[in-house]
């Protein structure tokens, strides 16, 4: 098939669309990754009553362990915590309070952490349920886990998902429309060739195949170019962040799409554009069925 400008336009449109989709997904993944990283640092502290015994501590620990998503429940070393606190106040309170008095001020604390694979929403739900269960225990004095922050993060995640889904839908619809438009022009510009093929006894499928072969080539090349470009930009950006001290920590937490994610995206986009193109080609060729004989 000829019509180079149409082919080039179609190729550019498909490549840019794929590039936009991959970039959006990558941004979402890393933003949520950064939020999750922050939330993972946020653990639950369960403060026991002053008169709690070792048996009480063990009972509370056993109760915590009943939640399968709990990855660790550690009784904090009061002595160490006291020293740290005293050191931080050294300049202000030197000699005002003794080490023993300080330790007595610190309640028995159990630090609870959840499995790192949990999402923000799951983390928030499990912490809330655990907090409810623990407050019912007579030996628990107070519970702290920055519930409001987790709720805010969960809200941000939800908003991002909604925006992401809407943007994805808009992008996908635009791609469908543009690809359909381009394919239609492409088929119409190849009217003469379709006529000749039809005159010589080519079946509909063999006519579709001529176009589909081109579409297959476009999508494959577009996918390779789009993926390579995003990967290249991502690597360069990550390296740049790595060298600048301020964002060094952030750069460690940035990840490209995993192999499974990449394959899923490639397969999905490929199928989507290919099926869309096929139906457009089919409709356009069928419309041209009244082929001129003259």
């Amino acid at each position: 098939m000829k019509i180079a400008p149409l082919k080039i336009s179609l190729f550019v449109i498909i490549t840019l669309s794929i590039l936009m989709i991959i970039t959006s997904l990558l941004c979402y993944k890393n933003f949520i990754g950064l939020l999750s990283l922050w939330s993972r640092a946020n653990k639950m502290n369960i403060y026991l009553k002053v008169d709690s015994t070792d048996k009480d501590k063990t009972d509370v620990l056993n109760l915590i362990q009943q939640t399968p998503q709990v990855s660790s429940a550690v009784v904090l070393d009061r002595q160490k915590a006291g020293l740290e606190f005293q050191n931080s106040l050294k300049n202000f309170s030197s000699g005002l309070i003794t080490e023993d008095e300080m330790i007595d001020l610190i309640p028995e604390t159990i630090e609870v952490d959840l499995q790192s694979s949990l999402t923000l929403t799951e983390r928030e739900t499990i912490f809330t349920e655990l907090a409810k269960k623990m407050s019912a225990n007579a030996q628990v004095d107070e519970i702290s886990y920055s519930a409001s922050w987790l709720k805010k993060l969960e809200f941000i995640d939800r908003i991002l998902r909604s925006i992401g889904a809407s943007v994805f839908l808009v992008l996908v619809t635009s791609i469908s429309y543009l690809v359909a438009l381009m394919m239609r022009s492409y088929v119409e510009d190849s009217k003469q060739e379709i006529e000749v093929y039809s005159l010589l006894g080519a079946t509909r499928w063999s006519v579709y195949r001529i176009f589909l072969k081109d579409v297959f080539l476009f999508i494959s090349t577009s996918l390779i170019i789009a993926f390579s470009s995003v990967l290249l930009i991502f690597t360069l950006l990550k390296n740049k962040l790595n060298t600048s001290g301020l964002f060094g920590m952030i750069s460690d937490s940035l990840h490209f799409l995993s192999l499974t994610e990449s394959i899923s995206i490639v397969v999905l986009l490929f199928l989507f554009i290919f099926i869309n193109s096929f139906f457009t080609i089919q409709a356009s060729v069928n419309k041209l069925n009244q082929l001129s004989y003259d």
Binding site: L200, G201, R204, D294
Partner: peptide, 13 residues
């Protein structure tokens, strides 16, 4: 198409 394959066409154009 299978009928047309049994025919050869020569047209003015």
């Amino acid at each position: 198409p299978f009928l047309r394959r049994k025919i050869g066409f020569v047209l003015q154009s």
